[in-house]
Write a protein that binds this DNA or RNA. Sequence first.
DNA 1: CTGAAAGCGCTTACAG
DNA 2: CTGAAAGCGCTTACAG
Lengths: 362, 362
Amino acid sequence: MTESEKAAAEASDAALEDFQRSGRRPTINDIARLSGVSKKTVSRIINLSPFVKDETRERVMKVIDALAYMPDLQARGLAFRRSFLIGLIYNNPSAQYVIDMQQGILDAVRGSGYELVVHPCDLSNPNFLKDVRAFVERQKLFGVIMPPSVSEDEALAQLLAEIECPYVRIASVSLDRNEAMIVTNDRNGAAEAARHLADLGHKRIAFVSGPTSFRSSHERREGFAAGLAEKGLKLAADDVVFGAYTFESGVECGAALLKRKPRPTAIFCGNDEMAAGVYRAARDAGFEIPRDLSVVGYDDSPVAAKVWPPLTTVKLPIREMGRLAAEKLLSGAVEGFTGRVIDAKVAPALVVRESTAKPAGR
Amino acid sequence: MTESEKAAAEASDAALEDFQRSGRRPTINDIARLSGVSKKTVSRIINLSPFVKDETRERVMKVIDALAYMPDLQARGLAFRRSFLIGLIYNNPSAQYVIDMQQGILDAVRGSGYELVVHPCDLSNPNFLKDVRAFVERQKLFGVIMPPSVSEDEALAQLLAEIECPYVRIASVSLDRNEAMIVTNDRNGAAEAARHLADLGHKRIAFVSGPTSFRSSHERREGFAAGLAEKGLKLAADDVVFGAYTFESGVECGAALLKRKPRPTAIFCGNDEMAAGVYRAARDAGFEIPRDLSVVGYDDSPVAAKVWPPLTTVKLPIREMGRLAAEKLLSGAVEGFTGRVIDAKVAPALVVRESTAKPAGR
DNA sequence: CTGAAAGCGCTTACAG
DNA sequence: CTGAAAGCGCTTACAG
C-alpha cells in the first residue's frame, strides 16, 4: 500500500465513522460513495452479479456490513415492477392446517427477505376472481401458493397465468406443470388405511367422504377402495356417505352409519375433524371405540391425539408441504433455491394409535 | 358546452379508448394526461385532499374509473417512506386463536388496500428483538398488532416506539396508551366463571393456571379469586396448579388435582386446551363429568364444543379483538377509521354448556 | 469488469 | 385551487 493509498483509506474510514454517528439509514448512494464505486456496482453486488471483481466486492461488502445496509424493498420493487411478498390464498376450514402451512412457508423464506401475506377467500363468492386479481396486482406479489381446494380452481390458475403471477398449487394429484405443483399422493395414504383395517379382519367398512368439491375426497375414496380391493374387499357405493370435512358433519354421518343393520365395524373418515364427529356419534349411540367400532382419520391434526381413544390416522406433512411449495416458488428467482425441490415428494403415512382393533367376535 | 369544448371532449374520449385498447396498466401520468390536469392534482385526488375543485375531481374520477386505475403501492411507498402492510407478530400456541385474529384484522382492512403480513416468533430466541426490527424496517411496515404474550414484552414495545413503528397491543389489562391497547378484561370473565361454580354449590374448587409468563394467567386467577370471594369462598394458594396452556399440561394438572383428598368438585382452567386435558385426566381416573367433576374453560375455542360433554367456558371474541386492533391502528391514517374505536370495549362472557353441575350429594 | 444517464410511479416543497 | 421541478432508492439499457 503506497502512502497515498493509505491516506485515502484513512479518509474513507473517517467518512464511514462520520456516517455511523449520523444514525441515518444508508442508501445505495451512501454505500457507493463510502466505498468509492458507482451505485451500479453496488447494485450488482446486491443482485449477486458475477461481473464484479472480487477485490471490489470485498471492499464494498465491508462498508455494507459496517453500516448494516439493507436495500430498500420499495425502491427495488418499483424498479423491478414486483414486490418481495408471497401470497397464501386459502379456503381450508381447518385452523391448524392453515397455521402449519404458514409456518412451512416461513421456514422456507426465512432469511431471504421475502414475507408472507395471507389471503383467506371464499370460492363461492362471485367476486372471488376479481378479488384475487386485485390482491395480486395491487401488491405486485412475487407469487402465490394455493392449498386445496383453492388450488383445484382452474379458472384461478388460468387468471394467474394470464397476469403472469408465478404460483405453486398443492393438491392430492398433479393438476399442472411439475414446477407449479406439490402433490400429496392421497391415494397412497388412503390405501394404507384400507390395508390396516382389512388386516385387522374388518369386512363391513364404511367411508365418510369429504365434500365432492374437494379433489382429495375422490382421491381418498379411490385409494381406500383400491387398498380394500388388494385384500379382496369391496367398497360399495352404499358404503360411502358424504360430509363436509367438519366436526358437525362427522356427527351426522356417523349417526347415520351406526343405525344401519348390519352396522359397519370400521369407519374411515376423510379427515380427523369428521372422525372426531364420528366419535361423538358413537358415544351418543352407546358404542365404544375400538371395541364396537374402529375409526381411522386423515391429516394427523392435533385433535387426533386429543380425542379418546387416540385416533389412528394418516399423517399429512402439512408444514413440510408449505416449505416445499415456497421453495419451489422461489426456485430460480432467489439464490439458494435453484432446482432443489423440483422432484420433492410428499408421502402420507399411517399413524396407528388406539382407535382401531379387531372387530368384535374375532 | 362550446363547439371547441365539445371537440376537446371528443378528442379526449378517443384518447381514452385508445388507451383502453392498449391493455397497459395506467399510471398517474396517463390519468393526468387523459383528464387534462397535472399529476399533482391526480395525486391530491388519490390522497383525498380537500383542495380540489369538485368539477375537476369528477372529471378525473371518470378517467380513473374508466381505466380502473390503481396507484402503484411500491411507488407511493417509496415516496411515503412506508408500505401498506400491517404485521401480526405472535407467539400464541393456539392455531384457532391466530386464525381468528387474522380474520378479524382482515375484516377491518378489507377494501382499504392494506394487507396482512404474518410473523410468528419465539420470545425465548435471543435474536427475537433483532428479528422483529429487521422485519419491520425491511418491509417498512405501516404498523404492527401484537396479541399476548408478545404484547406484554415491554422491550419490544419500546423498540417499536424507538423506530417509530405504530402498534396496537392486545392484552388482558391495559399496558399502554389507550390508542395502543385493546384490553380483554380477563378478570371479569374469570369472575363470572367463579360465580357460576359457587352458585351451583361448589366449595372445593381448583384453578389450573396458564404459565406465569402470560399476564392473562394472573388476571384470570385474580378475577376468579375475586368472584369466589363475592360468594364467601376463598381460592387458596394450594388450590392453584400451573400448566402451560397446552392439552398435555392440562392432563398432568388434572391428574394431580384428582389425586388429592379431598378432591376438588370443580376445576376452572386458564384455557380450553387445558380443560380438554383435564377431561382426559378425569376419564383416566374414572371420574365422569359433570357428575363427579365440573370443569370450566376459557376462550370458547372450537374444541369446547367438540369435547364430551360440551364445555362450559368463557367466550373471548378473538376475531372482534383482531378487528378492533386493526381499526385502532389504521385510525387517523386511513379515511373512515378515524376515532371510531378508541373506546371500544371487549367483554368476555360465560357460555354455559354441559360440563358444570351441582356437586354430588346436593 | 465498471459507470453515467434515464427511468420506475409516486409525493413533497415551493410557487403562484 | 393548481402545477413544474426535484426527489424517494433502486434498476435497466447502453456504452466503454
